[in-house]
């Protein structure tokens, strides 16, 4: 990389990127943007998990809910979620609201589908066992259906987690006034390429670590398997 085959602008050396990152790190600006991104991603994802999980389990448990919701899920699931970026901006502007709404809408369906498939795969014999031991129907929903759905639900949430990063970064790249995606675009347009590379790598590794930590936590929750 130091051979001069490419211009240092186009591919800054690793040491230049590292020192650029350090210069950013001692400036609160980086952390302000990181906090904005974290807040948006966290809030959107949390909403998606709560609403999507509840919807998926309700779809598996009550047939009318399924009849109402499944055509919409089937129709909207294949939609490229990035198409929603302009609408959320139209509705809620350039700030946090539009990002949270986007991530919520985009991440909800994988969670719903995971919860739905998981709850539907719940064995009849488990439900009957619980009922014959005196569990009410509502008990069964909480004690049997929800834990049965957990492996697939957690898988759906993993997809949603990856999706939340994609949606967060792309929406911030395209329209935002804060956030790590915004910072990348800002630095790039200003020609500060070593700093831009630093933030890009930071975002990429944040995504990687989020996934790893999530997998670790999920395997703890599912340690009863095999």
């Amino acid at each position: 990389m130091r051979l001069g085959l490419v211009s240092a602008d186009v591919l800054p050396s690793l040491s230049a990127v590292a020192s650029a990152w350090w210069n950013l790190a001692i400036d609160p600006d980086l952390w302000r943007n990181a906090a904005a991104s974290l807040y948006r991603g966290g809030a959107g994802l949390a909403l998606a998990i709560v609403v999507g999980g509840a919807l998926g389990i309700a779809m598996a448990w009550w047939r009318p809910v399924n009849a109402l919701a499944s055509p919409l899920v089937e129709m909207l699931y294949p939609m490229p979620k990035s198409a929603l970026i302009p609408v959320t901006v139209l509705w809620l502007g350039f700030g946090d609201g539009s990002k949270i709404l986007l991530i919520f809408l985009g991440c909800m369906l994988p969670v719903t589908l995971g919860a739905f498939n998981g709850a539907r795969s719940c064995e009849q014999a488990l439900v009957w066992s619980a009922r014959s031991m005196g569990a009410s129907r509502l008990n069964v929903l909480w004690d049997v259906v929800v834990p049965s759905a957990l492996p697939e639900l957690l898988n759906g949430i993993r997809t949603a987690l990856a999706l939340s990063f994609i949606l967060l970064v792309s929406s911030e790249l395209i329209v935002a006034r804060a956030g790590l995606g915004y910072l990348i675009g800002f630095l790039g347009e200003g020609g500060v390429y070593d700093a831009m590379f630093a933030v890009v790598l930071m975002v990429a590794f944040l995504g990687f670590f989020a996934d790893r930590v999530y997998m670790l936590a999920a395997s703890r929750v599912l340690r009863w398997r095999d």
Partner: peptide, 18 residues
Amino acid sequence: SVGFPMPKIAFLPIVTLW
């Protein structure tokens, strides 16, 4: 295993630059 969970979309400005 490192690349799969990364949000590759973040590289968009770099790819554009190149």
